[in-house]
Design a protein around this nucleic acid. Structure first.
Lengths: 182, 182, 182, 182
DNA sequence: CATGAATGAGATTTCATTCAT
DNA sequence: GATGAATGAAATCTCATTCAT
């Protein structure tokens, strides 16, 4: 049921992902089952968000090279983009959910997890000399924005070269964060 | 009427920006006037997007320093972020519209203008030695993604320091694009 | 304006013939002109009905052979069918208006004119021996029903042979009304 | 729900038979249930038409005297008119639907069944000498037109004598179709 | 005469949800 | 657990009409 929701969101967008479409995609003959299992629409999409984020985190964690802060960062970028190619609908759905989230906490809080972890990584890396001085929170947000941009383009441009995106992203992030030479 | 729509979208999100709320905000006594002036909901939000993009383009163009490709790029970044502080609701509305846009053209096509111009700028700058070698289209998308990220954060985090964001963005973009030092 | 209404009714049916469509067909930029010239929708379609009926009556009257009741009847039938071929949209519109008319008088009374005149003709012809004994009112209604049927078929079947219809109608009406032999 | 629709159409006409009135007549608290069960307004009225035509066909079939083509024809006429007296609202509704039907197929196609069967009957009867030579398709349409005329009059004239109509129709149809006496 | 903005009623349709089975 | 009928709110859209210009 959650998977059906992911698929529907990826196909028609969060706004148009009604219980009716989800039920049909899941092979259910009534939307009442969804109401039965979830407290409401927001409960359902929160569950979806969690499921997607877990899958994403698992995938990325397994590919993390934590031998140094910079390597952690770059392997995070690479793995993130690879996941987009691996499970496109997952990231599309997550992006829709995060974009539509009203300010404050709620679903938006979901994204802050990643951001905080990245910011902490930057603080570490600045201390040990991997990174130049910049605002960790802002840079964390920037890195995630690049990742989300690849997601968006992977939707809009069917023939997109994911490998190119990954390499470009890694190169850009490295240059934006590393210590300036001289 | 378009301005009322911008305000409502910025307040409650695109999804909840119903004709009823817009009419109320515009001081109209009926939603039918909106249907009268616009071919439909999509026509209205397309008009909104155009209006916002025009205002944005005008603002940025007036602040562009075109003495070199790199300066053009960095002044574009700075002006973009400044506009967010200037007309926050405009950018919030635009971001909602772009995020909800299904793939293909439509609202997504709205962003392609900027992207193409940036890409062309990169090609120029690479030829004249301002920029290192990278994929112009990908980098153009990245730069816009950073701008959109600042928009998003300006919504989610009321107390955000826009000046900090601008400086960080300029610094990051410059390092990501300039020629590598030996 | 009346002619535009006729055309629109013939094209999309009375039910869908809105002021908006009529105004567009008439080249007007606003429906308010229609409201200005007519007391309301019913006034407009009543005017249309009158216009059409006048045109129809003029056409038929000019072709009537009143040398005997039977000849009057048959020439009425022939001329009626010919008019359908001549001005198809006129009769289509009239038929729509009459069919949608609620019982009682109103627009329905428009049809009773023809019926009464035909019934009177039958009474005459029965007196002078042209027609057999039958209920004049019922037969009058029947004759008009055949005419309306040709109208209906001329809409539904584009390639309909109007001449065939006229001849068949004349033959059928003659046999249904003439005195039985022996 | 279908029966409620029939009743409402018979009462206020097809044009004014809104979901609201139908729901009210059916004792429903919301019009949404109609949208739930039917794909749309056209689906509903198509269902109504089918229901009515089935009832009509069943009634007439049970009263058909098929001992000869002419007897089949005349018993069809008699039974048809009798049904009008039996279930007035059914025929009123059907007539409204057919009259409002745009050309082409759709509801108009509903009548073609009867027409084809009658035409086939005429061909048979002409071969065996029951009927004179005439165009079968045209005559079939004519006979149904007479039937529909009685329906129409039974609406417009409350005190109409149905028996008289039946007898007049049978007499007229017999004379219009039988072989001419020398 | 003509325009076009504005109005309010009303129509269909979709939505999430509840309830009895 | 699963179904499908039923509900009420809300959304978009069309309609005829009015009014100021």
């Amino acid at each position: 049921m959650v998977d059906a929701t992911v698929a529907v969101i990826a196909e028609v967008g969060l706004e148009n992902a009604s219980f009716a479409k989800i039920a049909k995609h899941a092979g259910l003959s009534s939307t009442s089952l969804i109401s039965y299992h979830f407290a409401g629409r927001s409960d359902l999409i929160a569950t979806v968000a969690t499921r997607v984020r877990t899958a994403f985190a698992d995938y990325v964690m397994a590919r993390l090279d934590e031998s140094s802060p910079m390597r952690t960062l770059l392997s995070f970028c690479a793995a993130s983009v690879d996941f987009i190619g691996e499970r496109p609908t997952y990231m599309v759905a997550l992006r829709q959910i995060l974009a539509a989230a009203p300010s404050g906490k709620g679903a938006s809080g979901l994204a802050s997890d990643d951001r905080e972890r990245l910011a902490a990584l930057f603080v570490d890396g600045q201390r040990c000399g991997d990174f130049r001085e910049f605002d960790p929170a802002t840079m964390a947000s920037f890195v995630l924005a690049l990742r989300d941009d690849v997601i968006g383009r992977s939707i809009a441009e069917p023939g997109l070269d994911i490998n190119l995106c990954r390499n470009e992203m890694v190169a850009a992030v490295e240059r934006a964060t590393r210590k300036d030479h001289r």
